[in-house]
């Protein structure tokens, strides 16, 4: 098999003495769509945020494209331009219009000229179906539209890895579908993705691997077919049993 795009080794993280991640080993290969599921407080979001170092682990090493990131003088900002992130609460920049939301980081972090950034931003906004809203203020958009702008904003950086932190949890039920279909299309194109989600349907259909987390550990990691039909670990069985009820 080829090189993992991302590799976390022996990652430990605690907040105020409470262990959140306990000796995590986690690898993501190019083209994979890894879905992290599990109960609240199990460490899914913290694991995701450790990948682009919004959280700094206490111990362990993080390799991105084979390069160690934590115990070296690599620039965290360079790695972050290669890793897109989509948040539960969208976090669009409210003082910028939709287009500027998608160009500002291209210009500041990638030093792309304004014209080029503009072109790329429009291309991705079209892709998420929002070409008609490029000059709208984020506040005037619906939740689903905001999240699609957030996805376009991340994609405009041409990342090699996309992180999604419960991207549909803050949405009205009617708007979940439009965001999931954008993500599904992205997965189909071969984008490498790590998705923290409670959407089991999405995990099952789109995921290439499902990881169940509990108590700061990855309990089980398997392709969806095996994960949902013949779960190995008793914790997975209990989790799935609750879902079905």
């Amino acid at each position: 098999m080829n090189q993992p795009l991302l590799s976390l080794q022996n990652i430990w993280k605690s907040f105020h003495g409470v262990p959140i991640l306990q000796n995590i080993d986690f690898e993501v290969y190019p083209g994979e769509v890894v879905c992290l599921i599990g109960p609240s407080g199990s460490g899914k979001s913290t694991l995701l945020r450790t990948i682009n170092r919004l959280e700094e682990p206490d111990e362990g090493e993080l390799y991105f494209q084979g390069v160690p990131q934590l115990h070296s003088h690599t620039d965290v900002n360079v790695m972050r331009t290669h890793i897109g992130m989509v948040f539960q609460s969208f976090n669009l920049f409210p003082h910028l219009d939709v287009l500027a939301n998608c160009t500002i980081a291209q210009q500041l972090a990638l030093k792309r000229p304004a014209m080029e950034a503009d072109l790329i931003a429009r291309q991705y906004l079209t892709k998420v179906g929002l070409e008609a809203f490029i000059h709208a203020a984020p506040a005037s958009l619906s939740g689903g539209q905001k999240q699609r702008v957030a996805i376009a904003r991340a994609l405009a950086m041409n990342p090699t890895l996309m992180l999604f932190d419960e991207p549909t949890s803050a949405l009205d039920p009617e708007m979940v579908g439009e965001v999931l279909s954008v993500m599904q299309a992205l997965a189909k194109e071969g984008m490498t993705m790590v998705v923290v989600t409670h959407e089991m349907g999405f995990a099952r259909q789109v995921g290439s691997r499902i990881c169940l987390m509990d108590g700061g550990k990855i309990v089980e990691s398997n392709p969806p077919q095996a994960f949902f039909t013949s779960p190995q670990h008793p914790r997975t069985q209990a989790f799935l049993a609750k879902l079905l009820r």
Binding site: R80, G84, L92, F93
Partner: peptide, 10 residues
């Protein structure tokens, strides 16, 4: 806001 900006490499 801070996290979104930093996650984009700013």
């Amino acid at each position: 806001q801070h996290e979104a900006a930093r996650s984009l490499g700013l």
